[in-house]
Design a protein around this nucleic acid. Structure first.
Length: 411
RNA sequence: GCGUCGGUGGCAGAGUGGUCAAUUGCAAGGGACUGUAAAUCCCUCGACUCCGGUCUACGAAGGUUCGAAUCCUUCCCGGCGCA
């Protein structure tokens, strides 16, 4: 019935971690796996061939962005997401995913023009300082670009200000046109700062939308034969809501599951521990938008199989590279004449010959290549980290593997 | 030599009597970034500071004025034009 099969090949005795094989119509994904994000059908700064050399097995694109530009029909005419973006190896198409646009409910809604990120710092509410994505003037003019009601979300295009509406059915329809192997039900990603009552309200709305997304998918027999749909668990930082959401979403019959963001770093693990036990063992679990190296290992330990995150590429473009000894910001003065490898303890294919001083120079002088190299390095780093976790799971040494990494990276 | 325009913080370049330690951009230093409104954004950027200010500053030296980066005089330096 579903064009997706998942089998577990190894389990950790001390945690919920498992290693598996996820088989799609367009190839196999060994899990746990890191999924590079190519929002607009392109991983920023990195070509498909480079991604494959880095070990990427699957990429994730975004419904909202591709709907606005170039339009889902263009992607469909281009043969679907994978063919459109040239995501194939030796002439064989590779696996793809699309996100539903649910994250944009948050990033263009509650987070618009503000400092909020989906992962709150500690217990306190984020203060309005530091990063703002947009002009304050524009933000105050528009307020926000996404407004939620029970039936769906009305968006103002960030590109031209035009008005658009997403419902669960519309999101699924667009994702059918995009044609990824796996896609997500339309959900509401809430701000972590919302109170309990709102987290519950949004979660219940997400449940209704999940049901509608699934029905819309099943009604399209052709799409049901070729694509799989994942339901998304919400509930913010509250473990009771997470458990309730997992139970509800698990009962609907999805092909896989996503766990959505919106918590503080401290209760990320608690949210997983509350939700994962209610998810069927034989279905893949995707930790949406996560993450940082330590968070990925936490996710694996709690039984998650797939991870996508923009951090690797965004941090790289902005000059920060991962190393076994923690992140290094290459634009800092001290790296101007540091002729050591990007990470002396990590070899990433295609970046072996580049020194910190060289990439720092490229980044400072505005050469695109600097962004590409740093993005490749970070993607290679995080993919190797996850691949290493899978190998450790197969060898039964996952907890040592995790502890060693954490000690080195955060120590 | 005469005429003319100009000399402002690391650079470019605003300001043309008080609200100027001086707009802005770049450079520089620091910070942020977790389903990408992000090759982005934030902070600092003369010195000292008990963070309230204090001091030294807009080629140099004088002067006018309650008050000058801004007006006047002379000098120095540069561009252009004429000899």
């Amino acid at each position: 019935m579903t064009p997706l099969s998942f089998s577990i090949v190894a389990r950790d005795s001390k945690s919920r971690a498992r290693a598996g094989v996820l088989t799609t119509r367009n190839g196999v994904i060994k899990t746990p796996a890191f999924v590079p994000v190519g929002t607009k059908a392109g991983v920023k700064g990195v070509t498909p061939a480079q991604l494959q050399d880095l070990g990427a097995q699957v990429v994730l694109a975004n419904t909202y962005h591709l709907y606005l530009q170039p339009g889902e029909e263009i992607v469909k005419k281009g043969g679907g997401l994978a063919d459109f973006m040239g995501w194939s190896k030796d002439g064989v198409r590779m696996p793809t995913m699309t996100d539903s646009g649910g994250f944009q409910v948050f990033s263009l809604g509650a987070a618009f023009g503000r400092t909020i990120t989906k992962i709150a710092k500690g217990e306190e509410l984020p203060r309005d300082q530091g990063m703002t994505v947009f002009d304050e003037e524009v933000a105050s003019q528009h307020g926000q670009l996404a407004v939620i009601d029970d039936a769906g979300v009305t968006f103002t295009s960030h590109l031209d200000g035009s008005l658009h509406r997403f419902t669960p059915e519309r999101s699924v329809e667009i994702q059918h046109a995009l044609g990824a192997d796996m896609f997500f039900a339309f959900d509401e990603c809430t701000a972590p700062t919302e109170p309990y009552a709102y987290q519950r309200e949004a979660m219940e709305r997400t449940h209704r939308w999940a049901d509608r997304s699934l029905k819309a998918h099943r009604q399209n027999l052709e799409a049901s034969r070729t694509q799989s749909i994942f339901g998304i668990i919400q509930g913010g930082r509250h473990t009771d809501l997470r458990a309730e959401s997992a139970r509800e979403i698990a009962s609907l019959g999805f092909d896989g599951f996503g766990i959505g963001g919106s918590f503080s770093k401290e209760d990320m693990q608690g949210a997983l521990q509350a939700a994962v036990p209610f998810l069927p063992e034989d279905k893949p679990r995707h930790f949406l938008g996560i993450g940082e190296p330590g968070d990925v290992l936490t996710g694996i330990a709690e039984g998650m199989d797939l991870f996508d995150c923009v951090a690797a590429t965004r941090l790289g473009r902005h000059g920060t590279i991962y190393t076994k000894r923690g992140p290094v910001h290459l634009k800092k003065e001290q790296y101007k004449d540091d002729f050591t490898p990007l990470d002396p303890e990590t070899t990433v294919q295609g970046t072996e010959l580049f020194t910190r001083a060289y990439v720092a120079h490229l980044l400072r002088s505005g050469e695109f290549l600097g962004q590409t190299i740093a993005s490749m390095h970070n993607l290679g780093f995080i993919i190797q980290l996850v691949d290493g976790a899978r190998e450790a799971l197969e060898k039964g040494t996952f907890s040592e593997y995790r502890e060693n990494f954490i000690r080195s990276y955060y120590g």
